[in-house]
């Protein structure tokens, strides 16, 4: 094995290790932050600042009874939680954490991410279908419709960035932001991508697929033990992925003064993860038809308009 291969392998496993640990850590972070914004303390007993709560939660979720309902479609039921984790972890491969630290420098990186997040829809749709219960099915249906429609203008909102950078390669996109971070010229694109990102990870306020006050727990109603845990790990990984992408595409990725690039990347990503949690703490859930009409009647025209204006300006300035 050459030196380069060893280095690559170390990077791959380090990224895998860090992202999975971040997902576990986010369970604790979310509970602490929600508590902070609701005038409570949150988990503060186990270990310093309650940090060992993560370990306690892990022990709990791994030792719980893993129950598969007899009426479920077993192979599909088992494979569904694996898909969401697999697709999201794979999507992390194209994220440039800092110059040199990335799994693969793909020239269609952005398309790869979009493909992976589209494949993630199968997870929730399979989970809802194979559970053979009405709440799961409704949750799965909602998830499939919501994720597919928000997928459309998630892609469209990114086209502006691609036009400005002239590349689908995420590293090139970051390097193109040397002069100005893309959230200034692509502010509309940023807003649309952020909202679509929330809907993609089905986080609050767009958590209609699992809406606990209507659908018990939506598509994962029938899941227990680590299969249930994997949906949650998938959700937290999704938040991390979307935050990392927002940083990469609109906020200059690893760029920043003084501190090393990886630190800047972490700080920016952490900020957006906190925004995700703040959204959950503050906003109520819309009705389902509101969500769909908002998507198709507001977000889609907005992203198309953004595309048109960006294209027009680029054409006029002759770049």
């Amino acid at each position: 094995m050459t030196n380069e291969t060893v280095w690559k392998l170390i990077t791959v496993f380090a990224i895998l290790f860090v992202t999975l640990n971040v997902a576990a850590f986010l369970i604790w972070l979310e509970r602490r932050l929600l508590a902070l914004w609701q005038d409570r303390y949150g988990p503060n007993r186990v270990g310093p600042f309650g940090l060992l709560q993560v370990v306690a939660d892990m022990v709990k979720v791994f030792t719980k009874e893993d129950w598969i309902p007899p009426f479920a479609d077993k192979p599909v039921f088992v494979i569904a939680p694996a898909i969401i984790m697999l697709t999201i972890i794979t999507a992390f491969a194209v994220i440039p954490f800092s110059p040199g630290i990335e799994v693969v420098n793909l020239n269609v990186g952005l398309l790869f991410f979009l493909a992976m997040s589209s494949l993630g829809v199968y997870s929730v749709a399979f989970a809802g279908w194979s559970s053979a219960s009405k709440y799961s099915l409704l949750g799965g249906l909602r998830a499939a419709a919501q994720m597919l429609s928000y997928e459309v203008f998630m892609g469209l909102s990114l086209t502006g960035v691609v036009m400005l950078a002239g590349s689908f390669n995420l590293e090139d996109i970051v390097n193109a932001q040397k002069g100005m971070w893309f959230f200034v010229p692509q502010f509309v694109g940023f807003v649309v991508f952020f909202i679509a990102g929330i809907a993609e990870t089905h986080r609050l306020p767009f958590d209609l697929p699992e809406a606990e006050s209507e659908l018990v727990a939506g598509f994962h109603s029938e899941y227990s033990g680590m299969k249930f845990g994997m949906f949650f790990v998938g959700e937290y990984l999704g938040i991390t992925l979307i935050s990392a992408l927002i940083v990469t595409l609109f906020f200059g990725g690893w760029m920043g003064p003084v501190l090393p690039p990886i630190v800047w990347f972490t700080i920016k990503t952490f900020f957006f993860i906190c925004v995700f949690i703040l959204l959950r703490a503050s906003l109520p859930r819309p009705r389902y038809d509101q969500l769909m009409s908002y998507g198709w009647k507001v977000m889609l025209p907005l992203s198309l308009l953004n595309l048109l204006v960006t294209g027009g300006i680029l054409l006029a300035t002759g770049k």
Partner: peptide
């Protein structure tokens, strides 16, 4: 504005 208000709750006294 809602999000801002919730953010400011960070500095309130804890109820716990």
């Amino acid at each position: 504005r809602t999000m801002w208000t919730i953010l400011l709750h960070m500095f309130r006294k804890r109820e716990t």
